[in-house]
């Protein structure tokens, strides 16, 4: 029995040593929580925002930069636009793309269609790509996200962006019909959601393309403001050109949101 306790004590001592080292001897890295699938609000996006979204996916959810980086795991994509033209003519090309956009799309979902020399799976003689299909499996980009990535790649490689922003209902890849969103609660949220601050100076945002709205209530009535949102071209403020502001807010905003926004602006004095 004595040995039972002696050996048990010794074992405990060793285990607590290892435990202590793992807990206090090394820095503890807090694991990131599992990624949440993001909902896209494509309707209100400009092409620049859409490209930026593509960049975000490229660097984040798409995990592209794990390999497409300077360490040479995968080809760099900084000239993909120019390269695509040549590759589609290459004898080794197995895909069906006709345009740069199609080529990039194909290389995202069927990476083996063209494998850049030297980057194939080992032993496959550059016929098979080690890259996963980014529309499935662990990365799981939907068509809208793919389009954003393509737009980003076209933009960043200096070629013309030919992608069109997909319609809203392309975003949720599957599942039930999109849930009717509840109306926003504060005017600040409305301003953020509809991106007013991109062009206007209002509510802590400092856009400079459109008129400054920080004291708009002083000179403008509620009716004027309402009209300016619903039909931006009706009256163009002095010193600004027409055709800049999207005419679609009337379809997008809820009546409650619109009134809240108008009341808020009327109060800015």
């Amino acid at each position: 029995m004595k040995n039972f306790f002696k050996t048990a004590f010794f074992s405990l001592l060793v285990i607590s040593g290892f435990w202590g080292f793992s807990n206090f001897g090394i820095p503890q890295i807090k694991p990131a929580p599992p990624p949440v699938e993001e909902k896209l609000d494509l309707g209100a996006m400009t092409m620049d925002q859409f490209i930026a979204l593509g960049g975000k996916i490229f660097n984040g959810k798409g995990t592209c930069t794990l390999c497409h980086n300077a360490m040479g795991r995968a080809p760099m994509l900084d000239k993909v636009g120019a390269n695509a033209e040549e590759r589609m003519k290459d004898a080794r090309y197995k895909g069906e793309a006709k345009t740069v956009q199609e080529y990039i799309h194909e290389s995202l979902v069927k990476p083996s269609a063209y494998v850049v020399a030297g980057f194939g799976k080992s032993g496959s003689n550059d016929t098979e790509s080690p890259m996963p299909d980014v529309s499935g499996g662990g990365i799981g980009l939907n068509e809208a996200e793919l389009a954003a990535v393509i737009a980003y790649l076209q933009d960043s490689s200096g070629s013309e962006v030919t992608v069109e922003i997909p319609q809203m209902d392309a975003a949720p890849a599957e599942g039930a019909a999109p849930v009717e969103e509840a109306a926003l609660k504060t005017p600040e949220e409305v301003i953020v959601k509809y991106g007013c601050g991109m062009c206007h100076k209002v509510a802590d945002q400092v856009g400079a393309l459109g008129p400054d709205l920080t004291k708009v209530g002083k000179s403008k009535s509620k009716d004027y403001l309402r009209q300016a949102i619903l039909d931006p071209e009706a009256v163009i403020a002095q010193g600004f050109t027409g055709g800049m502001m999207p005419p679609t807010f009337g379809e997008q905003m809820k009546a409650k949101e619109l009134e809240m926004l108008v009341n808020y602006m009327a109060g800015l004095k």
């Binding site: 290892f18 435990w19 793992s22 807990n23 503890q28 890295i29 807090k30 694991p31 929580p33 599992p34």
Partner: peptide, 13 residues
């Protein structure tokens, strides 16, 4: 979530 090292070390211990 993936547990951190210290947590894992405790379970393993």
């Amino acid at each position: 979530f993936t547990p951190g090292l210290g947590y894992a070390a405790s379970v393993v211990s």
